[in-house]
Design a protein around this nucleic acid. Structure first.
Lengths: 343, 343
DNA sequence: CCATGTTGAGAGAGCGCTCTCTTGACAGCG
DNA sequence: CGCTGTCAAGAGAGCGCTCTCTCAACATGG
């Protein structure tokens, strides 16, 4: 009943512990008959290597830390996390690496987490949901710990990251609206203290500029990444510019709120006002009319984060890897066709 | 620059490695001056115990596995997971235990996960999102691995679990509607292959029965845990029973869908039809009118899961622990006051 | 036929820690 | 004053594994 050790495997196979170890670790310099008899013994005994013992000598842990630092209930991003985690998990699974989740909810816990991460308990770290100028990534990096950041890293940090192509996606969304013949295009901005929010705004402007449309700051209205935020922003925009014929919202949730506002104001979507969201979340499919949106696969992001980190760990270099994931505009009912409104 | 070991701590403190170890582990039989000098040395060197070395001899890992088995994109529960994870993380942090996340997305990965969990890589396991008759909890339990299940465990499994008081919450919700003077109360059911869905339905019936109201199966309409599902169910219910004056929906998302349906049908909420949801998620606050709902703290659930598991690990017993967490009805606009409709 | 690789396999040290066993010091008691 | 009991502290084994070093066996070339 006792858990079998390498020693026993070696004994059963009639070889030395060293040879058994070589087989387990896939060393090339092992004769065919030794390999086979060890493999048979492994199956027979149901042997599984003891991670602790292995770590002790290799100084590796076969585990990566995933840090979700939450300043104070930044609820917005929650639904994404699970998807990203799933992606990371998938990317790690192939290598039998384990995912150690670290969620720090207080400064005290954050310090504990940092201590934990810097003391060699993990082979690398994936960071998430950074508040603007978090020093953690740079900190870990400077201690020689492989780090990859999900989303844009705090500015100034020379750190690897994987990000969605926010600019490309938003640019495509606005350009799409323009191509539909819309000319009075407003935008509902995301929080401007988040890189994604800033970038999407910039892309909105760039797209207008590229099409030769005039920029008008009063067509931009910000808010939180919530349904209510979107609704209120839309109310304001309609008041300012009753002749708006399109809206680019920085998130689906905001777009859904805007939809309610437009409804209440008697605007038809997409006939009077076309609207495009961002994220392509479940929400986009459940609104009435269904929402055009910019698709980004958070699961893919997770997978890329895992890959990127594993590469860094393997290479033992300190190269900065940047990966930008394509986003894709998904056109649904809310932005179909040219304006037909008459108000 | 090298990481300090216990050996060095002992040398600096001028004591034996054994004594240093005793101090680190808080053994009571250590003299005051020895303790102090060791503590000083620890601070001075920035010593942190090597987990691998410790595990090797103690045969403990100071880590628990959290398993999220996802049959096939059961998206419904996603938003909860992060909250539960946060709770677990918080509950574990105090004990310096680490959270190893295991997400199995394919049968192949599931087998890998099980192998991992049964090979003594974790001190205990928290299981989640079980599909009806998952054998995993019973399996782990029979291998002597401490297990706690979040939500109702598969029937028949003699396993510890932490669950929300679905019955109590749903009962309170329906009773509340009755107390408001509603008499034609419909319900939108959750999936009947999930324990929570079944229990909420039972509570709905129990509440009607307790109030002496007649049961009518045609007032029950099921669907998926989605907005659309709720909307379609409500459509059907209105068709069957135009005189419905209240609805208990098994989730906020479904309630939101029902709201759209009621809106489209020209029913006023709450004047004509009162409605109560379940989960008290963000959605409840962003609907128009705001949604009465049954509150359940998923974070608390996570914390209780962690506590329960830690207890089992410490006690080394195989006792089955059951914890039922109180749910609480939160009354908002959607169910305020008696019916005033005249249709 | 001997020097020289080349390749497969074993011996053994040691990773950092815990824990049992043993020892030493000292108090209490007859 | 010697004996026993108690408590603090040290010595040392050993957890399961990897990895370097060494060695044996055999092939190759001069």
């Amino acid at each position: 009943m006792a858990v079998p050790t390498l020693e026993e495997v070696a004994r059963v196979a009639g070889v030395s512990r060293a040879s058994a170890s070589r087989v387990v670790n896939g060393s090339p310099s092992v004769g065919i008959q030794v390999r086979q008899s060890v493999e048979r013994a492994i199956v027979e005994l149901g042997y599984v290597p003891n991670r602790a013992a292995r770590s002790l000598v290799t100084r590796r842990n076969d585990s990566v830390g995933v840090v979700i630092a939450e300043p104070t209930g930044r609820i917005f991003s929650d639904p994404f996390f699970v998807e990203v985690l799933r992606g990371i998990s998938g990317g790690l699974a192939a290598r039998e690496m384990q995912l150690v989740l670290v969620m720090s909810q207080s400064p005290e816990e954050e310090r504990r987490a940092e201590r934990y991460l810097t003391r060699g308990h993990v082979d690398g770290v994936i960071l998430f949901s950074l508040h603007g100028d978090d020093p953690l990534p740079e900190h870990l990096h400077s201690q020689g710990i492989p780090v990859v950041v999900g989303g844009e890293p705090p500015r100034g940090a020379r750190v690897s990251y994987v990000d969605n192509d926010n600019h490309g996606g938003a640019f495509a969304a606005v350009t799409h609206l323009i191509e539909q013949g819309r000319t009075r295009i407003a935008t509902i901005l995301g929080p401007q203290d988040m890189p994604a929010g800033v970038t999407r705004r910039r892309a909105y402007r760039d797209a207008l500029r590229a099409a030769g449309l005039p920029l008008d700051e009063s067509l931009e209205k910000g808010g939180e990444f919530t349904r209510e935020g979107g609704q209120r922003a839309m109310d304001v925009l309609l008041q300012r510019h009753p002749d708006i014929d399109a809206v680019f919202a920085a998130s689906d949730l905001m777009a859904a709120g805007a939809l309610s506002s437009l409804h209440a104001a008697g605007r038809r979507v997409p006939e009077d006002v076309a609207i495009v969201g961002f994220d392509d979340s479940i929400i986009a499919l459940s609104t009435q009319p269904s929402l055009s949106s910019v698709h980004q696969s958070m699961e893919l992001m997770g997978r890329e984060l895992a890959n990127s980190l594993l590469q860094t760990i393997d290479a033992r270099d300190r190269a900065v890897r940047r990966v930008v994931l394509e986003t894709q505009l998904v056109v649904r009912e809310s932005s179909g066709g040219p304006p037909t409104g008459q108000n």
